[in-house]
Design a protein around this nucleic acid. Structure first.
Length: 716
DNA sequence: AAAATTGACATTTTT
DNA sequence: TGTCAATTTT
């Protein structure tokens, strides 16, 4: 059965789908059916007789790639699994593996994640004795992040430090020595970090013309999604793979470029037409996602920023409510307000159609506390990655010891799990293994084993596993048998959470056929096939970066205040401010029907232990007030300055507060941060007492339903 | 040398 | 809050 493309697509989409020859640039505004276009194009190509394996689809996340392959598979009523795809990093990894010996890796190479890189740098640093006992010497992860930034932007480390961290230039010499040492150490141990994958890939294609020819002959059709977020190497790789005249389509939206911090170059998309002469430019401007009132607001944000490509989004959905502006008194009451809004929305939409978005992962903490209290299930995206949790890394290291026996970091980590083995012994043993061909017998190992039975068991286990490279789940399970007691000993505080993490890992492993593919995916992607199908009954919490490309019926954005959104750092740099604004644009354009903007009046500050009053985000202040409606609050909130009266608190007996209550039944008080100078009547319950003058309280009264968890500080 | 303890500190965003 | 590095103890 042929697909009726004309009927399913608008003219611009149709043009993009059928323009299969030569370079094509698609400027796809938010919600303009970008994914749909790519999906139909994949189907169209296959229908035209292009074998799926000759199509290369480069996307930002594996999740996005899978989604597109599945959907086009449904369209064609056949398996699309053979389309090659993934991230630039993932694709590079596969190709580099294939040619690793040509590149001089006799034993292959291993890929490091951020934590591994820190470990390597830590070793280098202590060997070189740099920055010891100097409290103001930057942390390893800080140094690594600047090193990575330098490589992504293709500047020298010195230039980056001068631009972004002038205060660190006093350590310049030491930092440069560390950079050199890190480089050598990676070489010595055959390790590649994420950035190396891309640069080495480029080297492979440039220095080995036959490889380039091979790649070009295999991938006759190339598509790159989210092109506005590619960096310089990625653009060069695109050109290398497709060649200037090749069949390449890139899709992107310069208004949604939000990875500048990682070296993304909006220039790539702006200059595509000159890099690929004769490129066709197609614009998708009709918005199918949001209602007109939501679109009016996002267009207003758009008009506040310098646009390069002209865009004028219009919606097919005229009806709908204006976005809502909600101003809770504090971040605690914001959490309560979000909860009640979610309760209201959940009458209309399933929970997984509602998303709460934020600038940084930790902004969601107070909300998470409240959600847990109310036992509302949620799923969080962004922030700490699953595969970076210590216990997951432990297990993966044990597995890598078998699959990548030359992987020093895996051995070091794996061996260090055993009692009595630390960094030094681990290194000594690793060397013994290298000499013995990894699993052979040697005197040294036997001698050590006689003192350490745990070690012998591990070795036996690993020797067995070597024979079963094709059952990741079974492999994992037997590793887990060994690891579980160690885990229980090591992390006895939050054991349940970690155990469930391991169960999740087991499910992920079950989805793979080969152990090495499983391991590679775990390092390279936020590969969560389990979490990918958003759980039906869960509210979605996500960083805006992780929300890219997704959409929900209702979107709530929290913490729209200065220093958080935009982040404090960004306020100093005009360029970064632009990126923050695009970030807000991305966030708002995720919404189909309801858009809620939450602007708390104060934020709890860990350092001081107080709530600090904050100004609304400048992006909110410059919005035309006609574009949103103010939330009709149910009366004054407690911590508003206007309240007046006295409060009598119900103290639980036996607490320090009881004494306090006895001595003064009616207390003059200010809520945390000293916002409120007036006295207020009400009823409350102490949740947590921090005598003599600070109490965490649940309030009830005065039209306030509940403000839980607000701090009170009693004046003397 | 390894393990346990203390103290300090810093918080974007991701492959 | 959790993490990292320097410390003391075993």
């Amino acid at each position: 059965m042929m697909i009726d493309y004309k009927k399913s697509l608008n003219p611009a989409q149709l043009e993009a789908v059928t323009a299969t020859q030569g370079p094509v640039l698609v400027i796809a505004g938010a919600g303009s059916g970008k994914t749909r276009t790519i999906v139909y194009r994949l189907a169209y190509l296959v229908e035209q007789g292009v074998p799926p394996e000759n199509i290369l689809l480069l996307t930002f996340t594996r999740k996005a790639a899978n989604q597109m392959l599945t959907r086009s598979g449904e369209l064609l009523n056949r398996e699309m699994g053979k389309v090659s795809g993934g991230t630039f990093h993932g694709f590079s990894y596969l190709l580099l593996k294939k040619f690793s010996s040509a590149l001089g890796f006799a034993q292959g190479f291993s890929v490091m994640d951020a934590a591994d890189a820190e470990e390597v740098l830590r070793t280098v640093r202590s060997e070189l004795k740099i920055g010891q006992k100097d409290k103001s010497f930057p942390r390893n992860r800080t140094i690594l992040s600047y090193m990575s930034k330098a490589r992504n932007k293709e500047f020298s480390l010195q230039q980056i430090l001068e631009q972004e961290a002038l205060h660190l230039t006093e350590y310049l010499e030491d930092i440069l020595r560390l950079e050199q040492g890190y480089f050598l150490e990676k070489q010595k141990l055959s390790l590649l970090d994420f950035d190396d994958l891309l640069f080495l890939m480029e080297r492979l294609l440039v220095e080995y013309p036959e490889v380039l020819e091979y790649v070009r002959s295999v991938y006759g059709y190339v598509m790159v999604d989210e092109y506005q977020d590619t960096n310089l190497v990625q653009a060069r790789l695109s050109r290398l793979i497709a060649s200037e005249l090749g069949n390449i389509m890139v899709v992107g939206d310069d208004a949604q470029s939000i990875y500048g911090f990682r070296g993304a170059e909006v220039g790539n998309i702006l200059e595509f037409p000159s890099t690929f002469p004769g490129a066709r430019i197609i614009r998708l401007e009709q918005n199918y996602r949001s209602t007109q009132p939501v679109l009016d607001l996002t267009n207003c944000i758009l008009s506040n920023m310098g646009q390069k490509f002209e865009k004028d989004l219009f919606s097919t959905r005229r009806e709908g409510l204006k976005p809502e502006l909600v101003k809770p008194a504090s971040d605690m009451s914001q959490a309560a307000a979000v909860l009640s809004k979610v309760a209201e929305l959940s009458l209309k939409y399933p929970l997984h159609e509602i998303a709460v978005l934020f600038r940084a992962a930790y902004h969601a903490y107070p909300l998470e506390v409240e959600l847990n209290k109310a036992s509302i299930s949620y799923q969080k995206f962004g922030g700490m990655k699953f595969s970076e949790a210590a216990h997951i890394k432990d297990v993966l290291s044990l597995m890598r010891m078998v699959l990548e026996p030359a992987d020093f970091l895996a051995w070091k980590r794996g061996l260090s799990l055993l009692k009595g083995i630390g960094p030094k012994t681990a290194q000594r043993l690793y060397q013994a293994f290298t000499l013995s061909g990894f699993f052979g017998e040697t005197d040294e190992l036997d001698k050590f084993g006689s003192k350490n039975t745990q070690f012998v068991r591990l070795l036996e286990l690993l020797r067995e596993q070597k024979k079963f490279p094709d059952n990741p789940r079974a492999f994992l399970l037997s590793i887990l048998d060994f690891y579980r007691p160690i885990l229980e000993d090591k992390y006895l505080e939050d054991l349940p959470r970690r155990l469930s993490g391991l169960e999740q890992l087991e499910q992920i492993a079950a989805g793979y056929e080969l152990v090495d593919v499983f391991l590679a995916d775990m390092i390279l992607e936020n590969s969560d096939p389990v979490g990918a199908q958003a759980r039906e009954d869960s509210l979605v919490l996500s960083t805006i970066h992780s929300a890219k490309g997704l959409e929900w019926s209702a979107v709530l954005i929290i913490d729209l205040v200065e220093d958080r959104f935009p982040s404090r750092r960004a306020m100093l740099e005009p360029e970064e401010m632009d990126e923050e604004q695009r970030l807000l644009y991305v966030a708002c354009t995720r919404a189909r029907d309801y858009l809620g903007l939450f602007v708390p009046g104060s934020i709890y500050h860990r350092g001081s232990g107080f709530n600090q009053s904050v100004r609304p985000s400048p992006f909110i202040r410059e919005l035309d007030p006609g574009l949103y409606r103010r939330h009709q609050g149910s009366r004054q909130m407690l911590s508003d300055n206007s309240g007046s009266g006295l409060i009598s608190l119900g103290f639980p007996s036996g607490t320090a507060g009881e004494d306090f209550a006895r001595s003064s039944k009616i207390a003059p008080m200010v809520p945390a941060g000293g916002l409120c100078k007036h006295k207020i009547f009400g009823r409350g319950k102490i949740v947590q007492a921090m005598p003599p003058n600070k109490y965490k309280v649940n309030f009830q009264g005065f039209g306030i339903k509940i403000i839980s968890g607000d701090y009170l500080v009693f004046e003397d």
